[in-house]
Computed example of a mutant assay.
Amino acid sequence: MSQADSSRRSDDGKPNPVINALSNAVAALRADDDQLELAKAHEELGPKAIEKLSVPEARQQPTGADAVKALLQKQGKSTRPEDLVPGIAMTTASVDGAAGPLPANVYTPVGTGPFPVVLYFHGGGWVIADKNVYDGGARGLAHAAQAIVVSVDYRQAPEHKFPAAWDDALAAYRWLTANAASLGGDPARLAIAGESAGGNLAVATAIAARDAGLPAPRHVVSVYPVAQTSLNTESYIENAIAKPLNRAMVQWFVEHLVRDESDLKDTRLQLIEADLAGLSPVTLINARLDPLRSDGAKLEDALRDAGVPVERREYEGVAHEFFGAAAVLEKAREAQAFAGERLRAAFV
């Protein structure tokens, strides 16, 4: 049994009531009104504290996507993805991973291709969630960029420890360089994107593709990425008990992910110490109320130091996971539009 599992409390995984109340009070002062509404909708679904759960239990918890759906229902609005993001058709596909096929969702704009193609990696700390949970981000990006978005389910820990997800991500990109045309895409106009754990995978895959001699993506969009392994950055301390991501949850993810402490020094996790020279332009998106905000700032600095063109935007009043919630969050709509503009410019 892992340290994370053995430290489970006798409270059935319920959040500590004092910390929960304090977290809500801080959010009430700092978060936008629509972000507060979304947080309330999530809380009403009764989520337990991920860091107190086993992995199977954690994977059953209500997600950010569930909260968006609940809030839309409360507002009397449609929850159909096709209504929320019109002009995008979704199909499923199989993509070659490092150890076998990976299921993928393929989001295609209405119109005549070939379209640019974005390989997209979902979040969830490399342990929980999947491409369907992150439908909002991938679908929104397809619309904003007017590009095909291929969202893949890479292998997850603890069943598949580090670096299985990274191996799958590179294999998926290699597959895309050879198979983009079969999806109606233009193999000369590829990009990589991802959120959270997937934001890390996006940058790490661009590095790995460079080192493997594969065609470079035109652009990389990395949304609140994990870019280093210290849990003592300014934003980790400031947002230690934030929602929906807190410092203890990140520690839980990491404990399930790595094989031993040496993995924490690997530059696929410690991106800020990787060789970043020669990468394609990068767009970084961060939320103010997020333990990972400083990761984005540190990665921006490292990319600039390496001579990589980079632009980072930090959105006030919103929290981790905001990007895919454009159906209910104004800042998510702004962030998706920004990412789309950056991608469209890169695809010209």
Score class of each variant (00 low, 15 high):
Thr267Gln: 09
Ala319Asn: 14
Ser222Tyr: 12
Leu279Met: 15
Glu255Arg: 11
Ala326Asp: 01
Asp260Gln: 06
Asp263Ser: 02
Ala274Cys: 05
Arg247Met: 10
Ala227Thr: 06
Ser222Leu: 13
Ala302Cys: 03
Asp275Met: 02
Ser230Pro: 03
Ala287Met: 09
Phe253Val: 06
Val308Met: 15
Met249Gly: 10
Trp252Val: 00
Tyr315Gln: 00
Ser280His: 03
Ala327Asp: 03
Gln228Asp: 09
Phe323Met: 04
Ala248Lys: 14
Ala326Ser: 11
Ala242Ser: 15
Ile285Arg: 05
Met249Asn: 12
Asn232Pro: 00
Leu276Glu: 01
Gln228Ile: 04
Gly324Val: 07
Val250Gly: 04
Leu257Phe: 15
Leu257Cys: 14
Asn286Gln: 14
Trp252Pro: 02
Arg247Ala: 14
Val318Asp: 04
Arg293Ala: 04
Leu231Ile: 08
Arg293Leu: 08
Ala319Phe: 15
Ser294His: 04
Ala277Gly: 13
Met249Cys: 13
Asn286Thr: 10
Gly324Gln: 06
Gln270Thr: 07
Leu289Gln: 02
Tyr315Pro: 00
Ala274Arg: 00
Asp305Ile: 11
Asp275Gln: 13
Asp301Thr: 12
Val310Cys: 07
Phe323Cys: 07
Ala297Tyr: 07
Lys243Met: 14
Ala302Phe: 05
Arg247Ser: 13
His256Tyr: 11
Leu299Ile: 04
Ala297Cys: 06
Val258Tyr: 07
Ile285Tyr: 01
Val328His: 00
Arg268Pro: 05
Ala242Asn: 11
Leu271Tyr: 04
Thr283Asn: 08
Trp252Ala: 02
Phe253Trp: 09
Ser294Ala: 09
Ala277His: 15
Glu273Thr: 03
Ala306Val: 08
Gly324Lys: 05
Ala327Phe: 02
Glu311Ala: 14
Val258Gly: 06
Asp260Ser: 14
Asn232Ile: 01
Arg288Ala: 11
Val308Thr: 15
Gln251Ser: 12
Arg259His: 08
Tyr315Trp: 01
Thr283Asp: 09
Ile241Thr: 08
Ala306Arg: 08
Asn286Ser: 14
Arg268Tyr: 06
Val308Gly: 13
Thr267Pro: 05
Glu238Met: 13
Ala240Leu: 10
Glu321Lys: 11
Lys265Gly: 00
Gly317Ser: 08
Thr229Met: 15
Ser262Thr: 14
Asn232His: 05
Asn286Met: 11
Ala287Ser: 07
Thr267Cys: 09
Leu257Ser: 06
Lys265Tyr: 00
Ile241Ser: 11
Val318Pro: 08
Ser230Tyr: 04
Ala319Cys: 15
His256Ile: 08
Ala240Ser: 13
Asn232Phe: 00
Glu316Asn: 10
Ile241His: 09
Gly278Ile: 13
Tyr315Met: 03
Arg259Thr: 11
Trp252Gly: 01
Ala227His: 01
Arg293Glu: 12
Arg268Phe: 05
Leu303Gln: 02
Ala297Lys: 11
Val223Gln: 10
Arg304Asn: 09
Glu321Arg: 10
Leu257Tyr: 15
Gly324Thr: 08
Val310Gly: 13
Asn239Tyr: 11
Asp295Glu: 12
Arg312Asp: 05
Val318Gly: 06
Gly317Gln: 01
Ile237Ser: 13
Val310Lys: 03
